[in-house]
Design a protein around this nucleic acid. Structure first.
Lengths: 140, 140
DNA sequence: CTAGGAGCTAGAGCGTTGTCTAGGTCAAGT
DNA sequence: ACTTGACCTAGACAACGCTCTAGCTCCTAG
């Protein structure tokens, strides 16, 4: 039931350093319990919470915003609208990111296909215009 | 035909500081020309190249990698395979990012919908379990 | 003639997100 | 008894990607 920081590091993929750092930054919903000797004891709930933080982080939510969300949760019931606003904001942000990446991917894939032809044609490269940037801007 | 740094900043969205920074970092395919008085003169090609750099950056390519790509282009024809490898690597990276973001978006959207019900039900929030993290991990 | 604005270089500073070090405690194994 | 390994705190350091400052030169408009 109680997990050491090392165990939590192992299952979350965060380093023990990062775990302590996240705690200092106030990203844990409730203060981590301690053994008599001062060592941290994490619960499964803590791990679940951390997993959520990691999802937030990996989708580009700044630690600062995670902290604000955490604060709302820590304050308890009554601010669900605020949490919802925050989540919706991030939802839109992630959706926008996906859009942008898809657009970038199209561009990159286009460049890749041009180089593929180019390379497949072997020495064809030597036939291209010497001013490289021109051939390249033609490629993009 | 020749653009000042301010004009380029305006059309690329980069700051003049960032433009000089990029140049110092070797991200420009060819050295920017200068007026007699030392001021930079950019060509349309430079702007195109910068636009490509921005696409790379916004899709998560580190400046370092952009520099490597730039170096390849600067070296001229003959290394198309290397360029292709680099582009393919980034292509995969972007695709993976999109996947991850889509997964995150699903999770977030799920949380949002739970809070929406929650909020729509008005004071229903008060009916939920006081230990917030539990209700929340239930929500995720 | 002078003030403003844009540009220049070199280099310092900064926000974010960790990572690492120093110096120490504690428990278990040999 | 001693070593090893996990853990602790406080705080220094680092990578990345800019951003800003200081101190200067130009050009143009009033």
């Amino acid at each position: 039931m109680g997990l050491s920081i090392g165990q939590v590091a192992e299952r979350t993929g965060l380093s023990v350093h990062a775990l302590r750092f996240y705690e200092r930054e106030g990203l844990l919903a409730d203060p981590v319990r301690r053994e008599s000797n001062g060592r941290r004891v994490y619960s499964e709930d803590d791990v679940d919470w951390l997993a959520m933080c990691i999802k937030f982080r990996s989708s580009g939510m700044p630690l600062d915003t995670i902290r604000r969300y955490t604060d709302l949760v820590r304050q308890g019931p009554g601010n669900e609208q605020d949490r919802l606003d925050l989540l919706r904001g991030h939802q839109e942000y992630v959706a926008a990111q996906i859009e942008e990446l898809q657009e970038s991917l199209r561009v990159i894939t286009h460049k890749v296909s041009i180089y593929e032809e180019h390379v497949a044609a072997g020495t064809a490269s030597c036939l291209w215009a010497p001013p490289e940037e021109q051939s390249d801007s033609a490629a993009s």
